[in-house]
Amino acid sequence: MTKICFIKILQQTLNIKKKRVNPKKMQRKINKEKNKPVLSTKAQLSMQESREQSKIIRKKASQTR
């Protein structure tokens, strides 16, 4: 009798399926990962910082006019 109970328990655990992910949700997740910005070089980061600083300076200058 103990063998039968063990076999039933084993079968029940094997029948448990992993939850399927909705294909649309999976596609959105993949696209989100693809659209993440790529790591930049130090030169690119410094150029981006200088552009943002000049943008801030231009905005302040235009507000004072």
Score class of each variant (00 low, 15 high):
K25Y: 08
M47W: 00
T2P: 10
R28P: 00
M26S: 13
Q12I: 15
T13L: 07
I16V: 12
L10G: 11
N22H: 07
R20F: 12
R51D: 05
I30Q: 09
I30C: 00
R51F: 03
K36P: 01
R51N: 06
T64G: 08
K55N: 05
N35R: 01
Q48G: 08
M26K: 06
K18E: 06
R58Q: 07
R58Y: 01
N15E: 09
E49Q: 10
R51T: 03
K59V: 14
K3R: 09
K34N: 01
Q27Y: 04
K34I: 04
S40D: 07
A61N: 01
K29V: 08
I30Y: 02
K17L: 12
T64A: 09
K32G: 00
Q48M: 09
E52K: 11
L39P: 11
L14Y: 07
K60R: 05
Q53S: 09
L39A: 12
L14R: 12
S54Y: 04
T2E: 03
I56E: 02
L45S: 08
K59T: 15
K59G: 14
Q44A: 09
K3A: 14
R20Y: 03
K8V: 14
E33M: 01
A61L: 04
Q63M: 12
K24R: 13
I9V: 13
K18H: 05
Q12R: 14
N31M: 03
T2H: 05
K19L: 13
Q11C: 13
Q63I: 15
K29P: 00
I16Q: 06
I57Q: 06
Q12W: 11
K55G: 14
R51C: 01
Q12A: 14
K59A: 14
V38F: 04
L14N: 12
N15M: 11
K36T: 00
S50D: 08
N15H: 10
K3H: 13
K55R: 03
K29T: 09
K18S: 12
Q53I: 15
K19P: 09
K60G: 11
I16D: 06
T64L: 08
M47V: 02
